[in-house]
Amino acid sequence: MISFPIILQLIIGGILLGGIYALAAFGLSLIFGVSRVLNIAHGDMLMLGALMSYGVFSFMGVNPFYSLFIILPFFFAVGMVFERFLIRPIAGRPHHEALVASVLITLGASLTIADLTSFFTGADVKGISYSLPPLNIGLFSVSSLRLLVLGVILVLTLCLHFYLRRTFTGMAIRAITQEREGAMLVGVNISRVSMVTFGIGTSTAAAAGMFFAILFAVTPFMGIPLTVKYLAIIVLGGLGSLVGSLVGGLILGLTESFTGFYLGTQWSPTVAFLVLILILLFRPRGLFGIE
């Protein structure tokens, strides 16, 4: 079963999956690069973003794609507040201690968020019923919804790219990720940048959540397993590397898609994790990690 349309289908499926993975992983990677925190609550932010777009869609009838204009700024603020009250207090601790504290704090936050959400919104599966007719090109059909989602992800990625390249804060973020001490020496205000980073990271997760609500399904307890996946992606790409998380996401998405077709979907996560661990063994700092 190696025919052109099928391969193309699988590539599109894999890229889409990888794109959604990459978008949120991107945020997690930024956060790690700047604040040196393993943010276990990242997946829960994604879940909250998904629920918010669901809420806006079902109670106010807003098209989920437009709801991004509400979600992005709102979760930017949420991220900043999260950083200010939960991460800032441990920023000054010695490295190992800060790592331990960050696990406790963000895992605690994650449990709290999930439980509160299930209490207030109920634990049933939710999702946005929104679809577009498939595009039929010749013999095979492509999901037009997926192409649209891919387009939006591409736009968001480009925006982030230019933000990081062209603005002062963006450059500061990159500087801190690459050379923390150097950035401090030239007078970069780390705590302010860290707050902005959390804002950006959280809003990318929330945006990915919107795509989850359209394409898949949402439950209050989906956060932590997703975080595990995102952590895997950024380790694969190299902690703190942005290109890395993009490539990592795509590798994972494509691996899952192709394994799913040729070996059976049952094996796709297993193979994906095997690939991850193999890459780590040969490149202990990930594909694009900084030595």
Binding site: I90, I105, G108, A109, S110, L111, D115, L116
Partner: peptide, 21 residues
């Protein structure tokens, strides 16, 4: 009856914040 996991989470977060080590 309700929200015990949330309380559990809050306790964890507080220890992380205020009890280094």
């Amino acid at each position: 009856a309700y929200l015990h996991v949330a309380v559990y989470g809050v306790i964890m977060t507080l220890v992380g914040l205020f009890m280094p080590g």
